[in-house]
Amino acid sequence: MTMRQRIELTVNGRIRSVEVAPHHTLLDVLRDDLGLTGTKECCLVGECGACTVLVDDLAVDSCLMLGVEADGASVTTVEGLATGDKLHPLQEAFLETGAAQCGFCIPGQLLAAAALLANDPHPTRAAVEEGLAGNLCRCAGYEQIIEAVVVAARAGASES
């Protein structure tokens, strides 16, 4: 049995202390150890973006980061976007434009978009295309996703 290592991290504002296997990724820790299954698993090589989360406000493919590397970090997952029953403006915008189809890529898209708007509160369309280029959507709802990010930016998503 591999030696497990205790880490402490803040996930969606809550401090979590968890014993993790040193070779497990942050994605494994979130999904399997903390039961936060909103973050999705697809390619496991950092290409599809389905597992995107914020680590200290940076968008990260959680399949490429070891759990132990997140010791002391603050992590935001899709479960942490809404405030109680009040959806984040990005979530509202995704619903409004019909951006969420099958929905599997959407948690990653939302977090990538949140990171984008934090850096660039009013991005151009080209900046949104660039900012979400690492998040594949096979329903190919890209037009609606881009529209949603623009709508959310207008609604002041970055201030929330």
Binding site: T37, V78, F94, L95, E96
Partner: peptide
């Protein structure tokens, strides 16, 4: 009309449980 997708809310909050999410 184009009302919001039924089931859409779970898709943007991470609550939608796909097979791999079922324990």
């Amino acid at each position: 009309m184009s009302p919001r997708r039924v089931g859409g809310r779970d898709r943007v909050t991470g609550r939608q449980a796909y097979v791999a999410d079922i324990h």
